[in-house]
Design a protein around this nucleic acid. Structure first.
Lengths: 349, 349
DNA sequence: ACATATTTTGTGAACGCTCTCAATTGACTT
DNA sequence: AAGTCAATTGAGAGCGTTCACAAAATATGT
């Protein structure tokens, strides 16, 4: 099992009869290379199957061609059983990898604990050894002020997904308020007058916006906030089940439920089944996430589809641009989609 | 935004009053370092916050501290809507990242097209630039003989997940035949005599094993194969719906369905709902995958839980061992779990 | 105490690239 | 035709490690 000799830039240079540096210019699309020479070099690159060694590139130059994605351990598969995990990761990955691939960048994933004490050392280690050109922060890490400040101090371009605040960052998000307005109107138009909202964590930016928009939309329709019960305060299935039990046991229970994420929407489906309520006839349900599996639920959930993959893709694209010395910082709002499936209907009577 | 000076091995050496090489020995846990010196160096590493630069390590030494995970584009989020995607990726990632983290390795993900023509060039590019210490192949790439041969020729240690064949590889899998025997017996014991199997692709190793074990288990129970209809032949929702329609329209339709993956099990739930069949009273359903979301289905699916994360974790561990010059090649069978939830019951009558 | 084996430490080279800057070539003026 | 300036090419240094040694320090045996 002898390893085939790896072809280096020198090999290509020799084969093409030019210097190392000229080959470097060609593979980096640099200016000031005669078309004929460029072509000759490219032919040799192709023929010898030359691929630049990333480590050497990093050593010599300033770029690492690496984007680091920081993911929260609590939101992974590990915590599915406790109801905390989700499959956001899947989509984020997809969005990031696709974009990186396009530019011959690579995405390295890091699993980071939510615990504030260990977050920064963990990231410091990853950043220190990898020296990525950019870091992508996903919830809840993008809201970790201490971490964000640390990264800014390191001078590493940083993108936050699902975050709104300014600063010298790439911020990518969707119009949560608009989405909530649309969803609420949908239910209002159907004739619902008592709508429950299974809200996400109070300290989670997008959830705050949705909560606010929900209240406003109800007020605008002349429904006092008391009639729009807001419950939960996290993203977990079990908690949502409890909250729902209470909501539905009230004197005039909601005829529709908006869940801040899929798992809580599933909880609504479960509780409805337990109580003999038919969805959507007796209870309408809308989710605010739409992870891929949702379309296979019984019945298929109506939901706001978050542009998760697109957001991470955009974040990558901006970071890559930045690493090339182009402009990139700023805030970017990506469009969501309202997917009406089979869990909303006019209320009975 | 001035980047903080990065501390190098020389800085640590100077601070500890030793040479570069001694520091290198300490951080690599090398032998022949006086305990007092080791301690002094370690203190300095800590104090200066030194982290070895991965690229430099790769340049100097033989290891890259990188494990490359090859993932099939068709099985990602991108293809959920067509019913091909799954959230395997989530679990694989988790398993791999956790293991890498343990050893201060990093996992780089690559999204590869299934199309045979482009697979190898794509992987060649990634392998060439990253020079990973090992490559993890997941289905369907682990069954791509041409690719496997190419990787073997490159001399890069390679792990296959969900693969059985020998060769100079790390192979990690579960006991698919045993799992199928257990599942079938469960249904048989419940009193089912007509069981349908929504099989996976014919060219997918684990599916072949399950198919074989299913036939044998039925035969052993004195049920001729005709009574255990086998359908589908891929992993998609829509196809499974069609096959089920046919199965259930037969003169003596199955009272239980075994699905080769979750999506096809969901299809069974859907078709049952459409036909007014109650699960599990009128139809029992078992899945052969158990991705995390399954526990939230209505009703929660009984399923074989594949040790997906553990398999990838094991694959990583072996590759890392190998990169350290330890033994690592071989075949490893990991235990599955049979999770009985709410979709199996004795047949009516 | 001396030679010899062993452990511990240090030195120079190498890895493959990009950077900076100098040298060459070619085109355009006058 | 010489002079000027821009476009194109090349040479040398350096990035931060580990490797293969050589050197120094210590331990062991007689």
């Amino acid at each position: 099992m002898h390893k085939p000799a790896k072809v280096t830039i020198e090999d290509v240079a020799a084969a093409a009869g030019v210097s190392r540096q000229t080959v470097s210019r060609v593979i980096n699309n640099g200016p000031n290379v005669k078309p004929a020479v460029r072509q000759r070099v490219e032919a040799m690159v192709e023929q010898l199957g030359y691929v630049p060694n990333l480590s050497a590139r990093r050593m010599g130059g300033a770029r690492s061609y690496l984007i680091l994605s920081i993911n929260d351990r609590a939101r992974t598969f590990e915590n599915w059983t406790s109801g905390r995990g989700n499959d956001w990761v899947d989509q984020m990955l997809y969005g990031g990898m696709s974009e990186c691939e396009r530019h011959n960048y690579h995405m390295v994933l890091e699993l980071i604990d939510t615990d504030a004490g260990t977050t920064i050392p963990q990231i410091a280690r990853a950043v220190g050894s990898l020296r990525p050109d950019g870091v992508i922060l996903t919830p809840p890490h993008c809201d970790n002020l201490e971490l964000v400040a640390w990264l800014e101090r390191q001078g590493i371009p940083c993108a936050r997904v699902g975050h709104y605040e300014g600063g010298n960052f790439v911020d990518v998000y969707m119009d949560d308020e608009g989405a909530m307005r649309e969803v609420t109107r949908h239910l209002l138009d159907l004739g619902h007058r008592s709508i429950g909202f299974l809200a996400g964590p109070l300290n989670y930016g997008p959830s705050q916006k949705r909560r606010k928009a929900f209240r406003e939309a109800l007020a605008k329709a002349g429904i006092p906030p008391e009639d729009g019960p807001i419950g939960a305060g996290n993203f977990y299935f079990d908690m949502a089940v409890n909250v729902l039990e209470t909501m539905l046991a009230a004197p005039s229970p909601p005829t529709a439920i908006i869940a801040d994420n899929d798992k809580m929407a599933f909880a609504a489906l479960h509780v409805a089944a337990d109580r003999g309520l038919k969805v959507p006839d007796d209870l309408s349900v809308i989710s605010f996430e739409d992870t891929p599996g949702v379309r296979f639920s019984v019945p298929p959930l109506t939901a706001i589809r978050q542009p998760t993959a697109a957001m991470v893709g955009k974040a990558c694209a901006q970071l890559i641009a930045l690493s090339k010395g182009e402009e990139g910082m700023g805030a970017f709002e990506l469009p969501y989609e309202f997917v009406v499936r089979a869990t909303t209907k006019a209320p009975r009577g």
